[in-house]
Design a protein around this nucleic acid. Sequence first.
DNA 1: ATCCTAATTGATAATGATTTTCAATTAACA
DNA 2: TGTTAATTGAAAATCATTATCAATTAGGAT
Lengths: 147, 147
Amino acid sequence: MEDHKKRFDIIIRKLKDHGHKLTPQRLAIVTILARSEGHPSVEDIFHQIKKKFPTMSLATVYRNIVLIKSLGEVLELGFPDGSNRYDGNNPTPHPHVICIKCKKIVDPDLDSLDEIQKEVASETNFTILNHRLDFFGICSDCMAEKV
Amino acid sequence: MEDHKKRFDIIIRKLKDHGHKLTPQRLAIVTILARSEGHPSVEDIFHQIKKKFPTMSLATVYRNIVLIKSLGEVLELGFPDGSNRYDGNNPTPHPHVICIKCKKIVDPDLDSLDEIQKEVASETNFTILNHRLDFFGICSDCMAEKV
DNA sequence: ATCCTAATTGATAATGATTTTCAATTAACA
DNA sequence: TGTTAATTGAAAATCATTATCAATTAGGAT
């Protein structure tokens, strides 16, 4: 709970440091990103924000996500269907478990990939900067629905 | 080299088994997918195929990739910019190393993720079906260009 | 508190990747 | 060889995202 407040403050600090204005719309978007745990899509964020800001434009949501991403404060996951999901809560690379039915994303508690990353760097001669690790399957809720 | 021929034969067998016709266009697309090692995009495949089939439609390439994907014979990687890359050479989940500059994708030789996958399944109660592991960095060619 | 200005917003058009539609073509079976 | 359902080519449509532009406004200066 307190983590979300910290994340919010960090992102706001970053925005100020880069000379950006803190508009009510932007604050609302940062709030949603900072506290989100399910890696929402733009559509999810837009839908949620509509409750408090009925006239906010979808373009405003997109512009702000691009801005916060450019500051390194949100992790972006792209999917083959062209959609993207965002994590403002933990913007550094980390594993995900994704349900192929309901699209829910959860963060498992796994060991660091540092060792593997070093192995990869040494084998390929790439300068490795980050990674993406996702597991795809069916969550227990969706498994239960099959019954 | 012989692997490509095998992959081609496997995909062709799968298509036949599912009652699909073997048109010259489809054979050409399967050939490119089966021998590709760089995980080409639709644009890459279309560009390559134009040499032999100048009148082939982009829609034909898209339709055939969707078809082959539905047979489980091509691995699809989605990226945040909305583009997709395809591997018909090794369609099962495997690690990738991706250059963020030239977009080159190579397959490192890493140990299986089976252990981690079991750990994830047990921790999250998901039925894990597959995974995606990508490392992002800069390849040695692009590093050399910086000099 | 007021003024000013550049950043930001809202609405909408545009872009790029992909999918759909439909008439024409053709693979492959009888 | 004839037939037919699958497939193709061309172009329109769809969808996620970005760009444009007039209007609005956050926040710094006074």
